[in-house]
Design a protein around this nucleic acid. Sequence first.
DNA 1: CATTCTTGTGACATTTTTGTGAAATATTTT
DNA 2: AAAATATTTCACAAAAATGTCACAAGAATG
Lengths: 228, 228
Amino acid sequence: MAANILIVEDESSILELIALNLHQAGFNPIRAISAEYADNIVKETIPDLIVLDWMLPGMNGIEFAKRLRANSATKLIPIIMLTAKSDEDNKIEGLNEGADDYLTKPFSPRELVARIKALIRRRSPELVNDPIIVEGLVLDPSSHRVQVNNKSINIGPTEFKLLHFFMKNNNRVYSRNQILDKIWGDKSVIDDRTVDVHIKRLRESLKQSGYDKLIQTVRGAGYRFSNE
Amino acid sequence: MAANILIVEDESSILELIALNLHQAGFNPIRAISAEYADNIVKETIPDLIVLDWMLPGMNGIEFAKRLRANSATKLIPIIMLTAKSDEDNKIEGLNEGADDYLTKPFSPRELVARIKALIRRRSPELVNDPIIVEGLVLDPSSHRVQVNNKSINIGPTEFKLLHFFMKNNNRVYSRNQILDKIWGDKSVIDDRTVDVHIKRLRESLKQSGYDKLIQTVRGAGYRFSNE
DNA sequence: CATTCTTGTGACATTTTTGTGAAATATTTT
DNA sequence: AAAATATTTCACAAAAATGTCACAAGAATG
């Protein structure tokens, strides 16, 4: 389920640098050394995002982006444009022509990865399941684990879903019924108060790891996860 | 009491993108992958707003909008039309056929949310969930908190509702009976004077945070929340 | 198939909130 | 100034909301 990232870049050292970093970030890099080559790749598999060099031999980045935007199958693919030119005009033109973000060389790989995550998160949040961390409490959706100080804490399936839901929606109050809908699914004909019990169990698990007030009761309204 | 937003969109990635963003903005997204499906949903619950894709398999967006406009129960629901076509003709046709706003793909989720808020605010201002700030007093409906200088102040459920109501209706005088209707609901067979007591309790909470005269008594008329 | 884990519910305990009556203050009217 | 009216304050019992516990049924595991 890793996101496919197409990299279009003619300088192989940069191409490899990017590919390596994306791989390490858990993405699946697909390499293309020219727009024409990339075009063929796109015809086979629609990538989840494209990292596109501005200056390319043959068809350049802008043209390629235009082509993608003109085709209904590809027009929504997020594009991050790379360029060595740092002037504003190009940035504006790039964004106009359909780039969703823009990075000037030389760039830090870390920043590229961060921006890619941001874009992917916007379009297909299910593809980025980074661990969520609140006050040292780490919930990692991909490994289905909750850890504190690198030590896993024991937690039941429903408690996990609950905690995941809460951590994703930090600081917002949810009524028991909203929680039922989100965790159990709409079909549920389950008692409101079941939520209370699971909240209790979750609190207990968290308390054993030293987290005392992460889940707050908001009388008359529901529950809220918050570190404040 | 979050606003229900019906999203009618056949591409699931876009559907999810919109749903996620609406959820995070405090709305309650309802998903429909076709106009026919949406039609059934509308029969069950009237949404507060509809985000409607122009191109849909089966019945398309325009036709669906027409249907809604033809039915007195649904003709006032605000509709935001989404389209991949960027030409003006469609825009005009769309607006003529009953769309209240119009967004061309690809669009930024942030903008969609902004437009939705604008439309909802126009039709039902009470459904927009933004924090309300008066003289440093912050009431945030989504986290159900009242804060001063980033410090939460303690407040009971009824006091919260009261304060929320007052802050939304700054500077306006309400009689005890009006307040009873708004806060307790029509069913109330409750004594007028109960309002006085809750006003007292609210004043007390506010006073402890340094707000002394926010709620004013208007003799013979009722109460007013005002920072003047 | 037996064992272990997880789940939802009902019963009960605890805490918080609520509405009311009555008394105390305040404001206006006579 | 006294009377009449309106509002504030207080204490308290009833009601509502939440927390806790034990247990039987169900699901998952090996």
